[in-house]
Design a protein around this nucleic acid. Structure first.
Length: 569
DNA sequence: GTGTATGGCGCG
DNA sequence: AAAGCGCGCCATACAC
């Protein structure tokens, strides 16, 4: 079914409240899948009006995946006709693909198209007819891909992610300002007047100056600090803390303490609290599909880098609880399942994969197992990790072959692709230039070394891409599953209807945080156990969706508590 | 003044 | 011990 207005599908003058009620009505009547250019144009408007939609197809995000995917049929470097009203997606690679001829698909879903909040930089708004054509084109590409069911799943998950990102912003993470202030005061002392450093930092700085005999040293200047350290006989090559830690000088301890406090102050101090926490909610700007691998990014607020120290401020409302869950050892489990490595999958069946690797006699300690596995996925060549990787390779040859193959592909400038079909970007022109320079007859040893080094760098990126990207797909499916189940839970409990006059999240359990392999649901306490079950069921379902009945498990560490901090392991 | 590069560090 | 992936943000330094 399609919903178009009499002027050809453009609700140019429509009152936002009217749009919302139309959408709400259709949600209730036909549960459509909304097709729009960009979820960021519509989801915030609808959420403001208290309306949630169940499903959508985000043409921008899906178009970006399809444009660069090697899994799309006829992927050849030829020009394709992608409409210019479709902004380039975040992960769009340089590879162009052909559109299958005679694309004929039954597109089924509803289409709704309204005037976007036109930013000055935004391309001309598409007509409804153009949206239909583009949607057909994308569906046709997905159907013609190597594994249509996988690509359909990826596009659905990516679109669901876009909706969830908007909802996370609308809901906000419950944030207890008083708790955060207490954390700051305990660490830094009372809030200083503007332009002054906190007392605790001043004291530490004075001690560092005294110990270094540098009375006018500014600790915030790396160059000055490095000079002063070296003048005091501390043989460091940088001011980094892991280097400082190696030295036994009375200035080191106060300096490290100063740096820790400086970081807390600048990243999550009082200014951050004033800017980002409003009405006891932290509203981050999530960027779904914001990284090459498909992980999300954020812009502003640093929501993906919340230091452990301030997580104590994440506290459920009275009568509510937080369900905090993370997928333990997600990436190694994904590698085992992806490679269909039977020995590694056996290790991935238990709760502690690293322990199982030790029990299988591959390495001696749990810590070695962890370091070796991370080294295999990241491409470590030196140190403890590099030394242990070969042992891992002998025990798990298929898994090792998968990541080694991905690395070789990247080193040769080829794309690699995740399980569901997201492909890595091609290396930039500067990379190709470096490779070309090294193959010239007059190439210098430096040219060759640079080319080899950048080839290896890119190989490490593609090596990790297949694992991190597939793990991101698992996480998106998990997240989408949780969202669907929470909706079902709240309707079963007589929760809010689609329209709840701006209070979509007031009475129902809802997602409030997502961090790569971790999520938080804020829920009325009496529903917490049901929510926990929904979260666990969704994880199991994500495993089945990606890997079928593969013999790898994806166990969660899950806690029901009042505060994020008390949910930490 | 605005923009970019770099070091450093927080998270997964 | 500080390599080996993906990010964002802050402060400083330096360009224009």
């Amino acid at each position: 079914m399609e919903l178009l207005d009499p002027d050809g599908g453009i609700h140019r003058e429509l009152d936002p409240a009217h749009v919302a009620s139309e959408v709400a009505r259709l949600e209730a009547e036909v549960a459509p899948r909304w097709v729009w250019r960009d979820t960021r144009e519509w989801a915030p408007v609808l959420l403001d009006a208290g309306v949630r939609v169940a499903r959508c197809h985000d043409l921008r995000l899906c178009g970006a995946i399809l444009a660069s995917s090697t899994a799309v049929a006829g992927a050849r470097p030829v020009v394709r006709d992608r409409p210019d009203w479709l902004p380039v997606g975040p992960a769009e690679g340089a590879l162009e693909t052909t559109v299958p001829a005679a694309a004929s698909v039954d597109h089924g879903p509803a289409l709704f198209e309204v005037e976007p909040e036109a930013g000055p930089e935004r391309a001309a708004r598409p007509s409804a007819a153009e949206l239909v054509v583009e949607h057909d084109r994308q569906v046709a590409l997905a159907e013609a891909s190597d594994r249509p069911s996988a690509m359909r799943l990826l596009l659905a998950a990516e679109s669901a992610g876009a909706l969830i990102a908007a909802e996370l912003h609308a809901a906000g993470l419950p944030w207890r300002r008083s708790v955060h202030e207490r954390v700051l005061e305990e660490a830094l002392g009372p809030r200083p007047p503007v332009g002054r450093k906190p007392a605790r930092m001043d004291e530490l700085a004075a001690r560092v100056r005294r110990e270094l005999e540098a009375p006018s040293l500014r600790l915030d200047s790396h160059a000055d600090l490095l000079r002063a350290l070296r003048a005091a006989g501390i043989g460091v090559d940088s001011t980094a803390k892991w280097e400082l830690r190696e030295h036994e000088h009375p200035a080191v301890a106060p300096l490290l303490a100063y740096k820790r406090l400086a970081r807390l102050l600048s990243a999550n101090g009082w200014a951050w609290l004033d800017e980002w926490v409003v009405d006891e909610r932290f509203r981050a700007d999530y960027v779904a599909g914001g990284t090459a691998t498909g992980r999300w990014a954020t812009s502003g607020g640093g929501a993906l880098q919340l230091p452990k120290a301030v997580r104590a401020a994440v506290v459920a409302d009275p009568g509510w609880s937080l369900v905090v869950a993370d997928a333990s050892q997600l990436e190694p489990r994904v590698l085992a399942a992806l490679a269909r490595d039977p020995a590694m999958a056996a290790a991935g069946r238990g709760r502690d994969m690293y322990r199982s690797i030790v029990d299988a006699g591959v390495v001696a300690t749990r810590d070695e197992a962890k370091v070796a596995l991370l080294g295999a996925m990241y491409g470590a060549t030196t140190g403890d990790s590099g030394r242990l990787v070969p042992q891992l390779g002998r025990a798990y040859p298929r898994a090792m072959a998968l990541v080694d193959r991905a690395a070789r592909d990247g080193e040769s400038g080829r794309q690699v692709t995740t399980l569901l079909g997201r492909s890595s970007p091609l290396p930039p022109p500067s990379w190709h230039a470096a490779q070309a320079a090294a193959s010239q007859p007059d190439a210098t040893a430096i040219d060759e070394r640079r080319a080899r080094s950048s080839a290896r760098d890119w190989g490490r990126f593609t090596r990790n891409f297949v694992v991190q990207g597939t793990a991101a797909e698992w996480a998106l499916c998990w997240l989408a599953g949780v969202r669907t189940r929470l909706t079902a839970l709240s309707s079963a409990a007589g929760g809010p209807p689609a329209v709840a006059s701006g209070a979509v999240f007031e009475r129902a359990p809802h997602l409030v945080y997502f961090l790569h392999d971790e999520l938080i649901v804020h829920t009325p306490s009496e529903m917490a156990e049901a929510v926990a079950d929904a979260v666990r069921e969704s994880a199991a379902e994500a495993g089945r969706l990606l890997f079928g009945e593969a013999p790898v498990e994806f166990p969660l560490d899950l806690t029901v508590s009042e505060s994020y901090a008390s949910a930490e392991p």
